[in-house]
Design a protein around this nucleic acid. Structure first.
Length: 367
DNA sequence: AACCCGGGGGG
DNA sequence: CCCCCAGGGTT
């Protein structure tokens, strides 16, 4: 990349003019968010708040995060409080947010900061990067937003805005190095945190994946190469993804006296550490004809229930048929425990398991 | 470098 | 149905 100047834009050599225009826009248009210090405020950001919000915002939209962020701060006001919590309480509070390894790393990180760093977060990108669950994006974001350092923050929003500003037509992920380079050149020495948040606001509200509200709204409208070329709605390009396979299995519904039998998944891997209705392995198949008949986990009468639970994970679709085990008395299965339905919301149940529970409690065909 | 890892909202 | 989202860890 020879120059930050696009042949199709009026971008000045010195990006200061661009960043100043964006910061002026941000001063007026910054969204109010629970973890955000409004531009111009004298309040010092709380690194604990910034860190918590940034972990939650990984691959998760702002509107989804807000209620969880408020709930966490209410339950654990300081990083020391979070460190002292039981891991299962953290998983329960996290249930529904997804990517559950984030919750385990969040807890580990809180304990590390509390026990090894006297409750004080590192203030450099390099040292932040050493924390569990903190990668390049989050380290730069905390350094810039919480500590005012000129760290170059790169995320999906900023990738998109840069790809359009400079008409980067290389498909992702191949374009990442070039977009990172552009981001580094654009990041200002002062107010880098506000700058990063401003670009992300731009990406969320004006320069969206499909939604483009450039005209009269975007502070970079007159300097955007894709806007000049009319290519904005086609950028950034992406390599095509492999289609998702379908896995199928049988879940076992064991209910007695308003209790349900649940067990805990292994610590690592899919839905690590979360609770589940016991089930057979989830095997990839073309149809149910290929799925082996289930091994019933206890000698008792059983019945396959009508319908099926469908759920989609990051990399596969899941179909679960549910087998109801019938009991004359409350017998323990091999692993797990009986839990009263009244406490179901106090358990770390991922969404797919909540679907199973709703499916059996209010039978709906082919949910 | 490739793969694994959720869930929700919007078009 | 598709796509995307304030990505990180593991191997």
């Amino acid at each position: 990349m020879d120059s930050i100047i696009s042949p199709h834009s009026k971008t000045p050599q010195d990006p200061t003019e661009l960043t100043d225009a964006l910061l002026d826009w941000y001063d007026v248009n910054a969204r109010t968010l629970p973890w955000r210090i409004p531009p111009g405020s004298d309040i010092e950001p709380d690194p604990y708040h910034i860190w918590l919000s940034e972990i939650m915002l990984q691959q998760t939209t702002v509107t989804t995060v807000i209620p969880y962020f408020i709930k966490f701060l209410h339950q654990w006001p300081r990083v020391q409080d979070l460190a002292a919590a039981a891991q299962d309480d953290v998983l329960v509070a996290w249930a529904g947010l997804g990517y559950y390894a984030r919750a385990r790393n969040l807890h580990k990180c809180a304990q590390y900061v509390t026990e090894e760093l006297n409750g004080i977060f590192p203030d450099t990108e390099e040292n932040l990067l050493q924390l569990p669950g903190v990668g390049p994006y989050t380290a730069a974001a905390i350094a810039a937003i919480a500590f005012g350092q000129p760290a170059a923050v790169m995320d999906g929003n900023i990738e998109r805005v840069m790809a359009r500003m400079f008409n980067v037509t290389t498909p992702l992920p191949d374009a990442k190095p070039a977009l990172k380079e552009l981001t580094e050149r654009m990041t200002p020495q002062h107010r880098a945190g506000d700058y990063a948040q401003a670009v992300m606001d731009l990406g969320a509200n004006i320069c969206g994946p499909k939604l483009l509200k450039c005209s009269g709204r975007c502070p970079w409208e007159d300097h955007c190469a894709a806007n000049a070329l009319g290519t904005a709605d086609q950028l950034p390009r992406r390599k095509s993804k492999a289609p998702k396979p379908t896995r199928r299995g049988y879940a076992f519904w064991a209910e007695f006296n308003n209790h349900i039998w649940l067990c805990r998944r292994p610590e690592n891997g899919l839905l690590g550490g979360m609770m589940e209705v016991p089930s057979t392995d989830w095997l990839e198949s073309k149809s149910w004809d290929e799925v082996p008949a289930p091994q019933i986990p206890i000698i008792t009468n059983w019945k396959e229930t009508p319908g099926m639970v469908r759920h989609t994970f990051t990399h596969f679709h899941l179909e679960l048929k549910v087998i109801r085990l019938e009991f004359a008395e409350q017998i323990d299965l091999q692993e797990g425990d009986w839990f009263p339905f009244s406490r179901i919301n106090d358990l770390a149940l991922p969404t797919v398991m909540m679907k199973v529970i709703h499916h059996l409690r209010e039978p709906v065909l082919d949910l």
